[in-house]
Design a protein around this nucleic acid. Structure first.
Lengths: 176, 176
DNA sequence: GTTCGAGTTTAAAAATTATTGAACAGTTGC
DNA sequence: GCAACTGTTCAATAATTTTTAAACTCGAAC
């Protein structure tokens, strides 16, 4: 499954890999973030990339990442694009070469904000439109059902309000 | 995409469908829940089933659901199994036939609890084991990196603690 | 005990989503 | 200008997930 990374790390002597036979720290960390990615519905590759950058001591270039994870440059490029867009990863001033180098943003606040703003907020806005339409339809429902469906739509609006209210609360929670 | 349900509802005169040309209330509600399902990473069919039960005035049998959503009995069976397991749907005492009939659980507290307990909690527990392993590996890391990786693993533990603490907070939020 | 109806399970098909790799675009340095 | 190198895009492919349909289980009725 996510063994690709594991095999990569142990079949190639990279700086972080100790000389033991079990999975390396790097591989283990990558795996952990792959799992996390799955939970929040992100592609495995994104988890791998972030995990690698998270555990690595020095900033890595796109090619470094592709090589260590045995992943195509295309995938890495896409993954980094996403991670940058959510603020989970930073470009840091290239020391020597002209390649960009990346490092993981590790502030929980930043990570949570990026994720919520990019992945959750749009859905909430979309839901608003949907609720509008639903409300109109409910009012036109046949009399026998109107009371019931109107009540349900009201409840949905209530849910929506709560969800919208939860967002800033979560940001505060992760903020401190 | 989720047009299947739309077409179903409008191509067949079911009780809830008004005689308009646009999408019916039923179809619109089903769509809304399909979207919600996608957000939380659940299959479309689960969203459809819950949406239908949510908006419908009377309890429905497995066959009712399969027919209205133009979906196989197998899918409905699986979807209902999941929805029952999270407490999102209730079997209600069959009025006449010997079929089981289902209705949607609409308490936000119940829904949130079921989802968090079934979908999130297991991952948190799993994460705990992973962190243990990581910690051991970090301690064995080569001296040059040890300080860094140990710090990162500590940070991960902190994240984990927070996430675990968030769970009861969320339950309380949805509780009232 | 046989049949019938309701529901579940599962192997195979379909649909969806992620990844690759090659072509492309942009930059730097000559 | 061109050549070398970095990174992006996207159509094709691969992998994964979901759905189907048919076989099966279970129980009730006869």
């Amino acid at each position: 499954m996510e063994i690709t990374a594991t095999e990569t790390a142990s079949s190639r002597p990279v700086s972080v890999t100790p000389l033991t036979d079990g999975p390396s720290l790097e591989a283990e960390a990558v795996d952990l973030f792959v799992g996390l990615a799955q939970v929040v519905g992100l592609p495995k590759s994104v988890g791998q990339i972030y995990g690698l950058l998270y555990i690595t001591t020095v900033p890595l270039s796109l090619d470094d990442i592709a090589e260590r994870l045995e992943m195509s440059k295309g995938s890495v490029s896409q993954g980094l694009k996403f991670l940058r867009s959510t603020g989970a990863v930073r470009v840091c001033d290239a020391d020597d070469s002209r390649r960009d180098h990346y490092e993981a943003e590790t502030g929980l606040r930043t990570l949570a904000t990026g994720f919520l703003k990019e992945q959750i907020e749009p859905h909430l806005e979309n839901g608003e439109h949907r609720l509008e339409r639903l409300k109109r339809l409910a009012d036109k429902a046949p009399a026998a059902e109107r009371a019931h469906v109107v009540q349900r739509v009201k409840q949905l609006e209530n849910w929506h309000r709560r969800a919208a209210g939860l967002l800033p609360l979560l940001l505060r929670f992760f903020g401190k």
